[in-house]
Design a protein around this nucleic acid. Sequence first.
DNA 1: AGCACGCCGACT
DNA 2: GTCGGCGTGCTC
Length: 693
Amino acid sequence: MTSPGADPVRLAVAVEAPLHSGLHGPLDYLSERPLSPGALVRVPLGRRDVPGVVWTTAPGDDEGHALKAVTEVVDALPPLSARWCDLVKFTSTYYQRGLGEVAMAVLPPELRKLDNAGLASRIAKLRKAYDKPVPAAPAPVRPELTSDQADALAKLAEVNLPGAAPVVLLHGLTGSGKTEVYLRAAEAALAAGRQVLVLVPEINLTPQLEARFAERFGGGDTPRRIVSLHSGLTPAQRLKNWLAAHLGLADLVLGTRLAVFAPLPRLGLIVVDEEHDPSFKQQEGARYSARDLAVYRGKLEGSCVLLGSATPSLESWQRAEQGRYLRLTLANRVGGGVLPKVRLADMNLLPKVRGATTALAPALVAALAKRLERGEQSLVFLNRRGYAPVLHCTDCGWKSGCPHCSAWRVFHKGDRTLRCHHCGFTQPVPRACPDCGNLDIAPLGQGTEKLEEQLAAALPGARVARIDADTTKHKGALEASLSAVHAGEVDILVGTQMVTKGHDFRRITLVAAVNPDSALFSSDFRAPERLFSLLMQAAGRAGRDAAQADRSEMWVQTWHPTHPVYTALRQHDFKAFAASQLKEREIAGLPPYVHLALMRAEARTPEAARDFLQAAADLAAELPGANELLLYPPVPTTIARVAGVERMQMLVEASSRPQLQRVLSPWMAALPSLRATHKGVLRWALDVDPLAI
DNA sequence: AGCACGCCGACT
DNA sequence: GTCGGCGTGCTC
């Protein structure tokens, strides 16, 4: 193989080597011929043959020990760009995961299995399908811009100069036409010959937005190729779309968080829709925030990043306040519609019946009845499925706990089961109390099943339907329920938060949140922000039809009517809410004023998990820069035991990102040594910038 | 994490 | 005799 005079080249290759193996960073191999960084290869690792990405190359003077040779060079694939490698490297160091692990996790799984020949044939097929002439489609009709949209786009054009790579926060309330701004910004990027990346929080939201982009850019004189990237695609489809992006054949890539790693040779614009959405944070492996990586990638690629939301994250909002992001505002609904009037039902003022407050405020029932009379629809929202969150024995006090988790099992009346929503443990409802035999076991609290009953009882004759994870388990069930709503076969729709996102119910003039207070007292410091966002989103479901907008209402039942969340909601005032929340975060010493990482450990016993975390803290305290950190004592996680595994966590705080980052690498490198002395620990994980603590 | 080696118990 | 249980150790 070796031609005379050609020296072997030494390569550092990023391969998937587990963290605990002690193999960090790329591994060294030899190649008979020079290879460029970003090339896909197969290399021997132990007794296996694994895929890897060439990271760096160096002249081949060997330093003593013999290196193994690369098994295969996947020439068929053009090398990944230096910028792509930079994004992967950043993700690896910032979120503390192995370089190769990150690189392999963000490549399509199918790619790792293919050899040169297989890949070459896929690529050939893909190129042929484009070359094919596209049937002529009518040129798109572009809607007239509102003055808000026109202003925003003018300002965007002012800052989006070549090389400027601005980050723009588009604050636009529901129905104000954010999508049209995305479309126009995309149009400009496409016209300049660049590719556009659009990130959405959920797979369900991709088809809708994809259709909007296809309608605008799929036809006309220069039809554009649009592909989607998310985990719902078949492996073959995902590979195909990924290749189309990488080869520059796709002009628009639309996808969920993993699409932030799509290789795009001519990237010109990144749109992050609903940028505040928690789904952008990956919750396993490298726990990256796709929104934050999009901002980093924009800088890297010299691309404009457009972050859009009706209720921006406080992190993005603060950066806009500081002038680091440009803020553009869409304050009015397209077509002159108004947001529904918000009405608070103060539960403290309701009379008690047999010591208990009625579940539905009479004023809300009256408002629902009015909708029935007028033939309009209502949406009643409760973020808790099942009939009741817990059963209890009125005699001995027994409660329906889960034997494997530190959580209650939920009573589902539909199939008469007790179900644990954390580990899935399900049993038939006992006829009598398992502890004392008493026959009087009663449900406590309220879920969507019960709410459905209560509404039917309060409004005889109303056609009530329920949409939640339980009613939509079977394929097509969600679509069937939604079309029943659209066909006007339902008067009152009961649902969990899955009904609050995206759907365009034209005949709904009332949205009610029955028990939103529960979110206010969760351990999650972002709970008020999330609740506000959720309620704003829910409010946006009402009065979508401009003709009905003025008599649309959002009802909120609450025991805390003076809470800032509800005050701000009533005034539709995100700015005031953000200001008050940021003030609170500053006083409490929470992000974005401090920077956090959360170390979690799982073990058979809480003591083993705690001892491990304590030992990890002792290790951290020895590292240079440790005096800049605040290490909190280990505490049990919110649900301490899930499926028989005990979970503890330890918070690490620093006043700046560099201070935090400085200690993380040596700390994570030192941890595997604790395995020997802490054998009870099943696993540990670090979450940088955790969503909840 | 894989994947193999290795050193003990129950089967054709 | 060997098939296979999973403890232990290694991977540029």
